[in-house]
Design a protein around this nucleic acid. Structure first.
Lengths: 142, 142
DNA sequence: CTTTGTGCAAATTCTTTGCACCAAA
DNA sequence: TTTGGTGCAAAGAATTTGCACAAAG
């Protein structure tokens, strides 16, 4: 991925592109697997040995706050992050724990800007269940 | 609320109705304000002084696992719980932090049973933004 | 009895905070 | 030279675990 695209994404959201911020944004734009702060830290630490977890947390919070990425709370344990900010849903398998992107035909119909005087800035649709691979394994639990 | 209704809800989901479980289920069925484990504990502790937080956690996990209540992860800090299990959305105000129930006209259209071979058992729609009261206050932050 | 539920204390995990240092404008 | 970014260590908060006791069937 070209670095200029990553820097653009940061600057478009009013974020100064430091080395660490670029690395984190680059990781997210190259890996759409909804990583946690910990996963990102462990991937980048070998590349940037001075990197601290605090910076990863700070940066992710900042990116999410500025709208450059989105915060996924489908998993009650960890917050996950996603550089894909166009409207789509997430599916988490109760068996393997993996989180998948999920196309939703009618999502725009439920994502309104304002309802009943409530101003909506963000919407997340989460599905839980069993993925293709785990469906059969999980059924044996019952 | 009649105790028999609470016990029914437990038994319908295969949960044995102990004193603690009834109290927790009763609290949830009487307070649709999406309480955290801590809130529930603090409300019930004066009534049941022997109650432990572990039991509250155990019970909430069990109730959610059995489908008697649902787990709300709209708040990245705490897991919240809701005895209302019919399909509806939640809205969290970024300013005051309150979580509101939210009617959604087309939710059933996005809540399918199975998509692409993925088996869906649960769906959650979360909205974030500013509630009626906080809308004006929040706009002054910009 | 045997299984299931409860509760205490300790441990664990994720995240935030305080503060000092470094770098950029 | 002032502001903002980074990083370490410590603190904090939410939740889980290990284990012992109590209750139910």
């Amino acid at each position: 991925m070209k670095t200029s695209i990553i820097i653009d994404r940061l600057q478009d959201h009013g974020i100064k592109p430091s080395l660490q911020r670029i690395a984190i944004m680059e990781y997210l734009m190259g890996h759409y697997n909804h990583p946690t702060a910990d996963v990102i830290f462990n991937k980048l630490y070998p590349v940037i040995p001075t990197l601290s977890k605090t910076t990863v947390y700070n940066t992710l919070k900042l990116l999410a706050y500025k709208g450059a990425i989105s915060e996924i709370t489908i998993d009650e344990k960890n917050v996950r992050y996603d550089a894909e900010i166009s409207p789509h849903a997430h599916f988490r398998c109760k068996y393997c724990g993996n989180v998948f992107d999920f196309p939703v035909k009618n999502l725009s119909s439920v994502v309104a800007k304002e309802i009943d005087g409530f101003l909506i800035t963000d919407a997340q649709l989460y599905y839980k269940g069993y993925c293709k691979k785990c469906k059969t394994k999980a059924s044996q639990l019952y």
